[in-house]
Design a protein around this nucleic acid. Structure first.
Lengths: 205, 205
DNA sequence: TTATATACAAACATGGATGTATGTAAATTA
DNA sequence: TAATTTACATACATCCATGTTTGTATATAA
């Protein structure tokens, strides 16, 4: 069997993205040869070069598959009208982020690859910007939420919405890196809900 | 000139570590061939293999050169008896960390390499643990300081020393990654002192 | 039904990186 | 001062990854 139907071809493409994730995670991006990835997917390099221009394009495909849905999911909580108090929405959004990270292997692998198995130089330097943008947007989103919280009297006196947002921004980023950066981290994952609660409690009126 | 005096040899070693840092920072660790590094240092690969077993050993040497002094410097502030309030010592220690990071190019380059230009797999998987340990120790140190602060009535009511420590831990880690992770970060560096002050103010009694 | 484009596999060519082995002139040591 | 290390430079052998080219059976279009 050489020529495949369109569906089968699309299936091959997905198998390649899956294989790339697995191999990237096990070997690191630079040591993941296209041959390794192709074998993992049960095809040859020919298939890789047919569907993607090079390793970088495969990487980008893998990344987008989980990044965009992740942002949509967390945003849904952030903007959920069910939360009267914007601080609750912020807490829920962050909690959801780490919940998905905890019980979705695919997502966790992609984040682990991006945090500790990829070198951000040359073709991949742009990835850093693509990661930096959502982070910056997250800051702006929660800043607006904190402003709303302040206007409605939910925010503790003495702290500005901007300052609160930046503190939460750093907190979230740090939590992500501490969680995924060091393997076998003595059960940090279990502490996360409590840490988020504590963090938010500090800024409640 | 072939055979060098002991001093000159030690100078060559240092030149190699410096060159490694420069090349690692520019090309990423995996794309930094030992030939590139040797040329940058003005020698050949022969010198590299004389002084180091392989690239990993070079990497470790580069890292230790800045890591140990950094910990000593920040610890000095943390344990400085001049601070009556332990919260001030914590703030000073963190401030010092980012101050050094800001005006010492060598230190900043090493941290940037470790954060975004190295893949933590195989030989480098251990690096992750070596980085994780100081982070864990930092958590324990500030936890003790927060306990002291609580005992002396400096800590805001309603937050436990453990929870305060973990929040500060995540904050510091996040700040580091946000600062070094995304290049041209619209002057985040300038905001850091204010962010630290805000962060600490949230937990003062 | 035939022609053509598709979805790969297989073969080819190239270059770069690693590790090791060997050479060697000067610094040290005896 | 002769013998021996030292601190490299140079040469060699091997492997692996990449990109490209060619081949080909089959799905699809005309």
């Amino acid at each position: 069997m050489v020529r495949k139907t369109k569906e089968e071809a699309e299936q091959t493409r997905k198998a390649l993205v899956d294989a790339a994730r697995t191999v990237f995670h096990a070997c690191g991006v630079s040591r993941s040869s296209l041959d390794k990835i192709a074998r993992q997917a049960g095809v040859t390099r020919g298939a890789v070069y047919w569907h993607f221009q090079d390793k970088a394009e495969l990487f980008f495909a893998m990344r987008e598959d989980v990044f965009i849905p992740m942002i949509e999911r967390t945003d849904a909580f952030l903007y959920d009208a069910a939360y009267r108090n914007p601080l609750d929405a912020i807490a829920a959004s962050i909690s959801e982020f780490f919940r998905v990270l905890d019980d979705c292997t695919v997502v966790r692998e992609v984040f682990e690859i991006m945090i500790s198995r990829c070198e951000y130089v040359d073709e991949f330097a742009s990835v850093q910007e693509e990661v930096g943008r959502p982070a910056q947007e997250f800051l702006e989103k929660i800043e607006r939420m904190y402003q709303k919280a302040a206007a409605e009297g939910y925010l503790r006196a003495g702290i500005s919405p901007e300052a609160a947002a930046r503190d939460t921004w750093a907190f979230t980023s740090g939590l992500l890196h501490l969680l995924l950066g060091c393997r076998k981290d003595s059960g940090l994952a279990a502490e996360i809900p409590g840490m988020i609660a504590t963090h938010m409690a500090l800024r409640r009126a």
